[in-house]
């Protein structure tokens, strides 16, 4: 009997120790990124510019969705998430995850995230309300989810009345090709291309722009890393903005970026032509300032994805900081 009790107490003790030793000192920086999402700083990544700028090695890990990035940040395995979608970020801070938004990574029109409606359904934006009651494929909790709801609002259809099927972009494009769904909302170059073979965009890129629908990807950092290594966060943002500036000047080495992103050179160029990498001044004056574009997005999305258990924050400026952006 005593043996059993001591075994139980011992295992509780061991479990406590195991759970609490999660963090380690910053002798490497662990960064999350996406494949098939070409960004200029991937050149710096390949050339080890980041490693040299930090003075310590960088460990890059690729993820499939922004939600998984949050999970890894919460478990203490990732310090910086580059190009996390704003939607998963909002879901994370609504759930009170201790992470902060420090920079805008990518602005993209609806070239990279869009809703495609099947030609066979005979639906266009003029009669989009006919989608109600039909099946639509949406990767829930991603930027495409946001685009779906905003697009339906723009064309005057009730998104709640549709039969939403939770599908990743690859599956969603397969489903629309098969004719299983009337519409698929997707992100990623390959999936959209495949879906466009049998359908067309509900809103064209320009129409979406006119309706004020845009995608924003951000840079998020765990609160602990931000407090302990503020210099490294600044360095990361600085090197990224240098790479962005080089890209704006047309000096990026596209073949390196394409190879690192895992796409063909043409696809990379096509994807990046729809991306915008704003400079620090624009971000400070137009996006992350009080009442700026990003702050409005945060408010709208925060309320859109709020649940009873994870309600929207009253003030999203508390999870955003511009302190680490390069000076004016």
């Amino acid at each position: 009997m005593r043996k059993i009790i001591s075994f139980i107490l011992g295992s509780i003790f061991a479990l406590n120790l195991m759970i609490s030793t999660a963090f380690s000192a910053a002798n490497e920086v662990r960064i999350a990124f996406f494949l098939e999402w070409a960004t200029p700083n991937q050149e710096a990544k390949v050339k080890k510019t980041f490693d040299k700028a930090f003075g310590v090695p960088v460990k890059w890990t690729n993820f499939a969705t922004g939600g998984e990035m949050t999970e890894a940040m919460l478990s203490g395995d990732i310090d910086i998430s580059y190009s996390q979608g704003l939607t998963p970020f909002v879901n994370a801070v609504n759930a009170k995850a201790p992470i902060k938004l420090v920079d805008v990574a990518v602005l993209y029109g609806m070239g990279g995230t869009t809703c495609v409606v099947a030609n066979s359904s005979g639906i266009t934006k003029a009669n989009a309300s006919e989608l109600e009651g039909k099946k639509v494929a949406v990767p829930l909790g991603t930027m495409a989810d946001y685009v779906f709801r905003e697009t339906m609002k723009a064309v005057g259809a009730n998104a709640d009345a549709m039969q939403v099927i939770d599908m990743n972009p690859e599956d969603g494009s397969a489903a629309i090709v098969n004719g299983d769904v009337a519409m698929a909302c997707l992100f990623g170059g390959a999936s959209i291309e495949k879906a466009l073979e049998v359908g067309k965009r509900v809103l064209t890129v320009d129409e979406a722009k006119a309706a004020g629908i845009a995608g924003i990807d951000v840079v998020s950092v765990t609160n602990k890393f931000l407090k302990e290594n503020p210099g490294m966060v600044s360095t990361f943002i600085e090197v990224t903005h240098e790479a962005n500036a080089a890209h704006r000047a047309g000096k990026s080495n596209m073949s390196i970026i394409a190879k690192d992103a895992g796409m063909s050179l043409d696809a990379t160029k096509g994807q990046m032509s729809g991306f915008e990498f704003p400079d620090a001044n624009t971000i400070k004056s137009k996006y992350m300032n009080d009442g700026g574009i990003l702050m409005k997005y945060l408010d709208v999305m925060g309320n859109m994805f709020a649940t009873a258990e994870n309600p929207a924050l009253k003030d999203y400026s508390k999870v955003v900081t511009t302190d680490y952006l390069p000076g004016l």
């Binding site: 939600g67 879901n91 829930l140 039969q163 099927i165 939770d166 994805f305 649940t307």
Partner: peptide
């Protein structure tokens, strides 16, 4: 998880995306 409109697996997958651990 693959393509869901209903089912326990669907519920779990969606809950994960909105971080509803309960």
């Amino acid at each position: 998880f693959l393509a869901g409109t209903t089912g326990i697996g669907f519920v779990e997958n969606v809950a994960r995306k909105y971080m509803q651990y309960e």
